[in-house]
Amino acid sequence: MANILIVAEHDGTSLNTSTAKCVTCAAQINGATITVAVLADDASSVAAEAAAIDGVQKVLAISHPTNASPLASAQAPQVASLADGYTHVFGPSTTFGKDLMPRVAALLGVNQVSDIMKVNGSHAFERPIYAGNAIVSVDAPADAVVVATVRTASFKAASAGGNAEVAETSTDAEIPNHTRYVSLQSGQSDRPDLQTAGKVVSGGRALASSENFDIIYTLADKMGAAVGASRAAVDAGYVPNEMQVGQTGKIIAPELYIAIGISGAIQHLTGIKDAGTIVAINKDEEAPIFEVADIGLVGDLFNVVPELTEALDS
């Protein structure tokens, strides 16, 4: 019997879809009972959302003022104290989960299975290493709690339709005050979210300036797509860091990914391995991106992109 606790990711008001992806992963373990823990300032609305995920049996709502911001040092002791009685504790492999879960694992005295991409049994999983150049099958020890992060691009979000019980819960965990939240700076945008969008248009170093990136935004808006970028475009300051796709950026799995002026470095490709269809637009026919693209077009992006945008108009 697997009794699985999933730590919910949210922004204080709504649940991140990474949580429903963790539920899908957990549900692949035979006979799993799934509980979602929501740690928030006021957990009620997010807990209600979690309770509606299909496959969730129970939701723990832990409301505490220190949970207003997701500080790992404050949340890890709470999660570790909730973990008692569970066989597995899962979190998403997003920056939230990557920050928190190893701290939980260490408090529980176990190693973590990072980035589960496939479930082969209650303690048997597959995970990528070497930037996805190898897949390793791992067996977690059977006599210890399994703490893991779930590679969100490998699992579809569990659908709504559940009606789980919500239990207001508190922990007696000691919460340190040596770490304080100051601020979050995020490029507010009405565009679809990069991590969940069905379509993504990305630009690379070839855009050469943030002004030129406008042609990427215009095309994306026409398609209802999210906008991404290569590390080179982020490093050059054309776009903010949260738009980076790849090994050290976001790992995404849209139905359609359009890479424009991106060479296709291995670290970039790591982020789009699970995309449905990859389209590449690049003026260099030798660019490695064409080796993985489903549809390739050799051409100058400054001609191709406006033409494509215009063609979509009609």
Partner: peptide, 27 residues
């Protein structure tokens, strides 16, 4: 601590090279 055992290694599924199109209408 108890360790996670690595039992076997495999190369990742490779994406196949797709088609090339000539121009925007082709795309």
């Amino acid at each position: 601590p108890p360790v996670i055992n690595e039992s076997s290694f495999a190369p990742p599924a490779v994406r196949q090279k797709g088609i090339m199109v000539e121009d925007v209408p082709g795309l």
